[in-house]
Design a protein around this nucleic acid. Structure first.
Lengths: 216, 216
DNA sequence: GTCTATAGCTGGATAGAC
DNA sequence: GTCTATCCAGCTATAGAC
């Protein structure tokens, strides 16, 4: 994929731009081609179908975004820093419209099973990144004893997408939700700094709750 | 709305059933009418347009579901009970397909601004219920000092929707996320039972973080 | 590789008979 | 209130000229 003729790349970019502009329900070979500034028939010549183009665009766009954040993810050393990065990422990607694209694809995947696989692998790129940071900074933390790191990574990704969609319907509500979650994060910081006595207390509570098995 | 002729009601039910079955992108006057077992032209006679029918159906269906849970919400007296009810609600509504309908409408609202208002008011019905329970059971709790109750209610609703959409693309990931969040809830329980010393420590940390203003 | 043209289908919406 | 019939727009996908 290192070398790609101009038209194929234009179609990839056009597909993402079209989703951003019209939503997944509003994309078609015609709208994509118009956005890309190329002929409509080329969608089928290069990608066979609209779905396959969307799948390719989803994959390429997500990879690009994840790569763009890799260094910043790697630089994170605390929960607070991760939360700050999360906030920044949300705002930057919102500006660029990329979180919207992911949310749209996720919504589209509910309807169209041909979108399930590409969407799932796009989400996986993000959650893998989050999981690797979490497992690094939560090593030895009581939080890691309480919840599966992989599950947390999935929860973070799912909540992000949910908040993004929520914002489209109720912007003020979404802002309040974001603020509340950030404030709640203070609790996690406190938990991270627990002394041995408090840790024992937490552990005894944990014993009462069943520890779920994580799926692969 | 207490008395409604049979056909109008059939169309309302048909609209919800059609969304459940085909997703927002797959609903049309024809599919709704077919699901409802009535003539396609009646969509326009009774509701003027497909969008207006969807708005009415969204409103009616959500009200019905919220009403069905009102007593159970009212019976909740602790955070743990609320979480259990949340889990039960998610599973029951998932079974009935209603969370899917809400998620679909939310996705549709990103695309079609005519869906924004009905979707927002449907979400508001849920968040109002959650907020009233939260403010009751969190009265005097340090959690209420940390985060705005209304913001928390919005966050819960948004995360629920996000998880529902996530489940369509990656079922195993969604299950892990749910488990992780439940385990994390142990932290909230601990916070609820904090003694005076620990509360003071928490409060001093809180002072460092700015308390955001809540929107109306 | 890129274009035009078009087949074949589905959808929103309306007119007018009953 | 309900039905049939129909118009027109937009869609996927392909055939075939260049």
């Amino acid at each position: 994929m290192r070398f790609m003729i101009a038209t194929k790349q234009k179609l990839l970019d056009g597909a993402i731009a079209a989703i951003r502009e019209h939503g997944v329900a509003g994309v078609s070979a015609r709208t994509i081609a118009a956005t890309a500034g190329v002929n409509q028939a080329l969608v089928f010549y290069h990608y066979g179908s609209v779905h396959e183009l969307l799948a390719a665009a989803c994959r390429a766009a997500t990879q690009t975004r994840v790569d763009a954040y890799r260094e910043r993810f790697a630089a994170v050393t605390s929960l607070r820093e991760l939360l700050d990065l999360g906030r920044a990422l949300h705002e930057e990607e919102r500006e660029l419209g990329n979180v919207k694209v992911l949310a749209q694809l996720l919504a589209g995947a509910q309807v169209d099973e041909k979108l399930v696989a590409p969407t799932a692998s796009a989400l996986a790129l993000w959650t893998a990144e989050i999981e690797s940071v979490l497992s690094r900074i939560l090593a030895g933390s009581p939080i890691a004893e309480i919840a599966q790191v992989r599950g947390l990574a999935h929860a973070v990704a799912a909540s992000f997408v949910g908040l993004e969609l929520y914002e489209g319907a109720d912007p003020a509500g979404a802002r309040n939700a974001f603020s509340a979650l950030e404030q709640l994060a203070v609790l996690l910081e406190v938990a991270e700094d627990l002394g041995p006595v408090a840790r024992r207390a937490l552990r005894s509570r944990l014993a009462k709750a069943r520890r779920p098995r994580v799926s692969p």
